[in-house]
Structures are given as C-alpha cells and as structure tokens.
Nucleic acid binder design. Sequence first.
DNA 1: GTCCACATTTTGATGAGTCAAAAATACAGT
DNA 2: ACTGTATTTTTGACTCATCAAAATGTGGAC
Lengths: 223, 223
Amino acid sequence: MLPSSTVENYLKAIYLGAGALTPPSRLVPMGQLAGALGVAPGTATTMVKTLAESGLVEYEPYAGVALTKAGQKLAALVVRRHRVIEMFLVRMMGYGWDEVHDEAEQMEHVVSDRLIDRMDEMLGRPEVDPHGDPIPTPEGIVKPQPMQSLLTCPLATPVTITRVIDQDKVFLRFIEKHNLKPGESIEVEARDAASDSVRVRGRDEQRITIGTKAASKLLVQAR
Amino acid sequence: MLPSSTVENYLKAIYLGAGALTPPSRLVPMGQLAGALGVAPGTATTMVKTLAESGLVEYEPYAGVALTKAGQKLAALVVRRHRVIEMFLVRMMGYGWDEVHDEAEQMEHVVSDRLIDRMDEMLGRPEVDPHGDPIPTPEGIVKPQPMQSLLTCPLATPVTITRVIDQDKVFLRFIEKHNLKPGESIEVEARDAASDSVRVRGRDEQRITIGTKAASKLLVQAR
DNA sequence: GTCCACATTTTGATGAGTCAAAAATACAGT
DNA sequence: ACTGTATTTTTGACTCATCAAAATGTGGAC
Ligand SMILES: [Mn+2]
Ligand SMILES: [Mn+2]
Ligand SMILES: [Mn+2]
Ligand SMILES: [Mn+2]
C-alpha cells in the first residue's frame, strides 16, 4: 500500500525538520513537527505512533521522532519530487521562484516517478532546485553540501550565494530584488552583534544591511 | 471550501456519464455512477445526497442524479484540467496517448488554474485532447461537436476520424497500430449485422474489420 | 392485478485523520 | 527535594468516505 499524502507530509516534515534543528539532534520534537504540519500536538503524537507501527519512524515518547532507513528513503523521494517540480515550474513553465512552493506542495503527492524522471531529464538532471536546495537522487541520496551562512563565513572574502533556506514569498522577493539569489557573488563586509545585523556588498558595489536572522538563511560557498 | 478530490470525481463521473447514456437521458442512474467510480451502490447514494445538500446536483430517489448549473461548471473545469494535462503530457512530455489517463486522473485534482492556463498557452489553446475529446473553456463551456460514429456515418464516403471514446490502454494501442487515430482519413466500406462487424478502408488502402462495439467508439466527421 | 427480479436505499460499522481539553510528564530554578 | 511552566500524551468526539448486508421500492412479465 502506497503512502497517503498525509503520511508523505509527516515523513517530509521529519526529514526537513531534522536538518534544521538547533542544536542539531537526531530526534525531532513533537511540538516542532506539529507546528511544521499545522496540526494540533496530539494529532502529531497519534500519527507518529502509527508511523512507528509501520516501521517508518522510531518514536521515543517525550523525546521526539526520527526516520528509519525506510522512512528516510520515502521522505527523500518526496523531497526529490518537490524539488524537481519546483525546478520544472521555474525553468519550463515561467514561474517565479517565489511562486512554485504551493504548487509543488500539492503535486509532489500525485506525480508518477515516470513524469518526475521526464522532467528531470528535460532539465538536464540538475543537482539543486531554484532555491539551491539539493535534489535527492532517485535512490534517495543527497550529496552533503559543506556550507556556511552569511553569519559564519569569513569576512571581506568573496563568496557565492548557493542556497536560500526559506520558502516565504515576501522573503524570496526581497532576496531577488537585492540580487542575492543563488549564483550571485558577494562579500560580507561586517557583522555587528549589538545591532543584530550583517552588512553585505553585492553586485555593482551595492551595499545592504540585513538582520542576523535573515543572514542565517543565506548559505554561501567560498570562491 | 474547495471541493475534495472525491467530490470532483463524483461530479466528473456524472458529467461524463450523462453524455454517454443510452438512451440519452438527463438523469444518471446510481448503479451507473457507482460502477464508474468503483464504489458500492450505497456509497454513491450517500455521497449524492450530500452533494444535493451542497446544491451541486439534483437527486431523484430511485431515478438518478443530474448536475445543477453550479455542479456542471465545477465538473467541466475538472474535465478541462484533465484534458489539458493529457494534451500537455503527450505534446510536451513525450507520453503516448495510451499512457496519459492515469497520470491526468491524479493531477486534475491538484494543479492550479494558473498552471493549467500556462499549459494551455504553451499548447496553443487546443480545442481537443489527444483522444479528440473536447476541452471545456475556462468558463466551463464546450462547443457541441456534431458527430457520427463508424456505425452511423454514410457508407463509401470519405470521413475523418475525430475522436476515440475509450481510455483503455489496449484499445488505444490497437487503434494507433492500425492508423485509426484522430486526424486519419478513412471510409466505411461495409457493415454487417449478422457478423456484428464493420469493414473500414484506412490509410494506404489498408483494410480492417472491427466489431460494432469498437466501431461505436470511433467518431468521425464528413470531409 | 400479482409476483419476481433487480436496482436502490438504509443501516450499522470501519478506518483515516483531525481537534479541544484534560491528564501526565519532564525539567529548570530555587 | 519542591514547585511551576512548558511540553507531551491521553481521552472523547467529530468528519469524510467507504463497505456489507438487510430492507425497500420499481417496473416488467405473466
Ligand atoms: Mn518548496
Ligand atoms: Mn525549494
Ligand atoms: Mn483521460
Ligand atoms: Mn481524453
């Protein structure tokens, strides 16, 4: 029996939630999960227990939940579908990068592997989606991307923006407007703890100062 | 509240069922509907009653069900999505016409109007899908196609195949193999009631004899 | 007109997924 | 150790969609 959309959404939320934990931990707390899915805490608990029955997750009461090997594979494939679809919508269908998330959120549960592979082929087998998020292989593997954020990268050193970790439309449009999309070359000029801000020099000597919260969502690679 | 996939499937089945009735009647019998949807008769009855509550259908106990204006519009939009998707998969994604139905059956419930319109635009606003089925407009209107089948068209008169009414893979591959797809020019040479068959002359003087049941599924227009 | 076969509706039950609110638990601070 | 707060789990209930099987209605054959 193939997993329902609901099951897929839980697995994906655990998969994505585990990576984004601060501090990084194996177990995703139920509150986190419930929040990500927009359901009541009790609902998440119940659902996670049935996922554990199915062998898709390991559940430790009062501690949290983690994917099993099987759950991880399934989750990675949902994420693969999501990101291939986003890429397809941007490259082939003329969508903006801030407009694709909701559409992909629905389509990821219904498109066949066949169609995903056709899209992937037409796109030239890309490694990342429009936001720079890595696309898992059909086997569910993601090559780890060693990466720093604007908060941790060296100062006054040229870097390339490779990834934007936030699907919020308004944030994405802000990023686009200030030429901070993946691929752009920039430099962090200064960080100031007191004002909670980071000053960036972008394309054409453009300067912009953003908050540390926003800065942590922009990942870069040395150049 | 937007209709669930289930509601959309019921409305579509009623919409499509009403056209295919023999004899043509306003009301689709519950048995027919249950059969088309693959659910138990009692299930269809229950569901149709709630659809009637919502004002999407008119329900006459022991007689059948018909769409209201509102139901008709919704159903036509589901059919539009289905057929635009099928056309997109064939023209843009390299699918065969016998491979698109199942994929479209799922996608029709999740793709946005925005994406459907983008597909439609890329396809050059086609009037029919790969099987020759008419695509309703965004307003839910289908221009009536005056049409005859191979059973009713004049003998020894050149006609063009315009539509194939059957989504079965095996049947579609048979049709394709014998060059009887929409667009092909043919002539009905003879019909024989005793042998329940129809002899057709197709492309390159090809002759083929098919049963009346199959013949009734091939629609043609005078040329 | 009566009766029968068949279609339809009703009934009672089930599974998936959800919520609100009550109960239990963990844990940090004193 | 004790207590308070935040998190988590439990409980009871609800909606949607479904089935099997019993009850009922319909229309045709005779
Ligand atoms: Mn996304
Ligand atoms: Mn993304
Ligand atoms: Mn179809
Ligand atoms: Mn079709």
